[in-house]
């Protein structure tokens, strides 16, 4: 099983490589990828440096071009595909049908992975992308329970990658418009969810309020830790309770304890979310997961997630807590 780690910039790429990632994934400095944040991502030269660094240490580099171009922006996505191909990345992570069509015709030897933003939740949907564009791997949205992942892998004609750790999308990826409903910018169209430029923190009396384009997402007392105002993790009035995490609370996905099952299911890679996080974060998470995967490979039967690993991952999580998310039926 491969460990795929986030590289928001060159220092993070090096941190992931140095701490045992089998592959890293990155994006260009524009809206062609789903972490379109200020100060993040790669120029061509930085990517070239990154590829050289990674290759020298046996690590592969994957390039995410996983947002949805509209007609006026199309040349930018086409150029991103051409740049990544020219720089000889090991694979493209793509979501849009038009982009896939272009990439597989223009660069037939370039390996394509279906991004989680492609929103394929069944082997039938994956087959579409395999038959039409020859994708070699699909990344599963975070909506399937573990037995469903197992069945999907059995029936899939391509490799399957799943999310292992990091920020938790509560909604099926690639079809969530909560962010554009409030801000006009969504992961699909802009490459960011709840973009920072729309975030306002306001202190009123004893409380701290977080707003997204004016909409009150949460309100914190002095004793509470404030979280980034992601719409699906705010507190609202659901008609039963006046202030409740109606959708989800701030938490991170952590599937470390499912490693033996994911391996047995035939999942080929686990992805660590977090291109927007610091190099120190990437180093820490990569180190823990490398150790865990190695331990699981050595002895899957007796594998147990070590308490110190879980503590370390929890300390790096949103709200300092983790969940198995949809893998566990009870979460649903």
């Amino acid at each position: 099983m491969q460990l795929l780690c986030p590289a928001g910039n060159l220092p993070s790429l090096k941190a992931a490589v140095d701490n045992g990632a089998d592959a890293v994934y990155m994006g260009f400095k524009d809206d062609t990828n789903a972490r379109h944040f200020a100060g993040l991502n790669f120029t061509d030269q930085r990517l070239l440096d990154g590829i050289e660094y990674a290759r020298g240490r046996g690590t592969r580099v994957l390039c995410a071009i996983n947002t949805y171009p509209q007609a006026s922006g199309w040349p930018r996505w086409q150029a991103a595909v051409d740049r990544a191909a020219a720089l000889q990345v090991d694979a493209l992570i793509v979501a849009d049908i038009g982009v896939m069509d272009y990439a597989c015709r223009r660069w037939p030897d370039l390996r394509l992975h279906l991004s989680v933003q492609g929103s394929a939740t069944s082997h039938e949907a994956i087959r579409f992308y395999h038959q039409q564009f020859g994708i070699r791997r699909a990344v599963l949205p975070r909506v399937l329970a573990l037995p469903q992942v197992r069945r999907l892998v059995e029936r899939s004609e391509v490799e399957i990658e799943v999310f292992g750790f990091g920020s938790l999308c509560v909604m099926v990826e690639g079809r969530c418009m909560l962010s554009s409903y409030v801000t006009g910018q969504s992961p699909n169209t802009f490459g960011a969810c709840s973009p920072g430029s729309f975030v306002r923190w306001e202190t009123t009396g004893q409380s701290l309020e977080s707003r997204l384009n004016g909409v009150l997402i949460d309100r914190y007392s002095e004793q509470e830790n404030a979280a980034y105002p992601t719409i699906c993790k705010g507190r609202y009035d659901d008609g039963v309770q006046p202030q409740v995490y109606a959708l989800e609370q701030p938490t991170s996905l952590n599937t470390l304890e499912l490693l033996p099952e994911l391996m047995a299911a035939g999942v080929v890679a686990v992805k660590i979310e977090g291109r927007q996080r610091s190099p120190a974060y990437v180093a820490q998470v990569t180190r823990v997961w490398r150790a865990a995967i190695d331990a699981c490979l050595r002895d899957p039967v007796r594998f147990a997630a070590r308490p110190d690993w879980l503590r370390e991952l929890a300390s790096l999580s949103e709200g300092a807590q983790t969940t198995l998310g949809a893998y566990q039926r009870a979460w649903q």
Binding site: W74, D96, G98, F128, T189
Partner: peptide, 27 residues
Amino acid sequence: MAAVQMLTELKLAFITGPGVNIYNPQT
């Protein structure tokens, strides 16, 4: 897209709903 795949295999004309991501002329 699972339904798109099934309809394509059946060689049937089809309609896509608002949840199928068609954002550009190429798609």
